[in-house]
Design a protein around this nucleic acid. Structure first.
Lengths: 262, 262
DNA sequence: GAGTGGTCTAGACCACACG
DNA sequence: GTGTGGTCTAGACCACTCT
């Protein structure tokens, strides 16, 4: 047994706690990031780092994966691994600033089963689906699809209503009418997810990117008038709630360029 | 080039979209989970699965990693890979049910730098740190540390105040006084993190487990009276906000046992 | 002891960005 | 072309759980 422990020896291993190498590596790197690096700096490449720490590249990558999940690093294929800027505070206000959204388009098709259930409509009933991007500091940090049943926005022009073609005119029409609605309130949920193909494309990230999934139920007249499913880049965003008046929370970003190009 | 694509051939690869094998695998598995499996069922072991799909075990594991991050699978060393139950809705109410918390202990030491800044106190000033567990369905799904400056709870008995020994009597004393405070409101943030050693231990999970980090600032008299940092298991929790009255959101859990033992 | 997931290795090749 | 991160492989051994 003692032999086993020694043989495995990860350089710091003690018989007491067989800490995985990659986790120990992460700890070392965290300390280095905190003390010796500035946001935007480029780390040595993975092959050099793994050699320096005396581990296989795959093991080093496991540590980097953790740090990327925590938003401490940004890896760019063909470029290198950079130190990330602190996460942005993203307000999820009751009436979230509408100028921070960029409309993409809107379609008219059945919603996902879970959404249809929440809306209290048949699973095969088509609804308006407005897609838009949450912009911050000039870049897309979140993608949202807003599902609105026909009955809630009865005045969408028939030109749009009958067509399933996605366009932004329909989006504006739906949003306009939704804003006029008297809402009783909103309830929200947050959970962890991964970006599927469509969202990944909108966020300009590879599929599988971890995202914070924010689901908003807009209540009106005792029921749910609309549902919004927003996916925010988990590496870049810190969602902020109910900060009445407190809007910022975001450092003025001296090294904003780190996140500028995705 | 065409040769390259064919040689790489992942079984479904088309020249158009060089989709990674592990991502394609995930898609296949998601479909299988949706249609052929019940929560709590055990999947074939990794060696069998990788052979069946004709990939290396590491590649299969990459797909399973994704599914675990999404909360679709639970992997237990020595046991196998199980289909997870749907995530629990965890209310983050203004006055979150106090009986869903289990007090662990409380200490008296300087808070992390970021917390001290928020509280507007010197980084080296000791504060009360109450640690407790969020329980649901009989299991710990979140761990919280509540930081309260001395000035906010002046009536903590001197027996506790002078000692840095962690115990639950101090915790109760601090919580009691905090409840009597008149709060102007609370602001919250949610972001993705990974469980460090201490939290991991409290949650009975390995270090590096992804967690939703919920930071609550309790406002009083124009300032921040206290700060709570809660880490919830990202694989099991869906945080719910402002669901006035709507408390549940959690299925009655016919296969609750899936999550019973961590 | 047998079976499972977790860690680690060494090496190969691919996709992408840049000069 | 060169250098970077991303994917994939085949194999080994460890830690854990159950019988």
């Amino acid at each position: 047994m003692g032999t086993t422990q020694a043989a495995r020896g990860n350089g710091v291993a003690v018989a007491d706690a067989p800490e995985p190498k990659y986790w120990h590596l992460r700890t070392v790197l965290v300390r280095a990031l905190d003390s010796e690096f500035q946001a935007g700096e480029v780390l040595p490449n993975e092959r050099d780092l793994s050699a320096r720490f005396g581990v296989a590249r795959a093991t080093l990558r496991q540590a980097l994966d953790q740090l990327e999940l925590e938003g401490r690093l940004v890896r760019r294929r063909g470029i290198g691994t950079l130190v990330a800027a602190p996460r942005m505070g993203v307000p999820v206000a009751e009436t979230a600033g509408r100028d921070s959204w960029r409309i993409v388009d809107a379609g008219y098709a059945p919603a996902p089963a879970a959404v249809a259930t929440t809306l209290g409509i048949p699973a095969d009933e088509p609804v308006h689906a407005v897609r838009r991007l949450r912009m911050m500091h000039g870049q897309a940090i979140g993608a949202e699809t807003l599902y609105v049943p026909d009955a809630v926005v009865p005045h969408v022009p028939a030109i749009f209503a009958k067509s399933s073609i996605a366009d932004s005119s329909r989006a504006r029409s739906v949003l306009r009418q939704l804003q006029r609605l008297e809402l009783d309130g909103e309830s929200r949920t947050v959970e962890l997810g991964v970006a599927e193909e469509e969202q990944a494309r909108m966020l300009e990230r590879p599929p599988g990117t971890p995202v914070l999934v924010l689901t908003t139920r807009y209540q009106a007249q005792g029921g749910t008038a609309a549902v919004a499913v927003s996916t925010y880049r988990a590496d870049m965003c810190r969602l902020t709630f109910g900060a009445s008046g407190v809007v910022d929370v975001t450092p003025a970003a001296p090294a904003a360029e780190v996140r500028t190009a995705s």
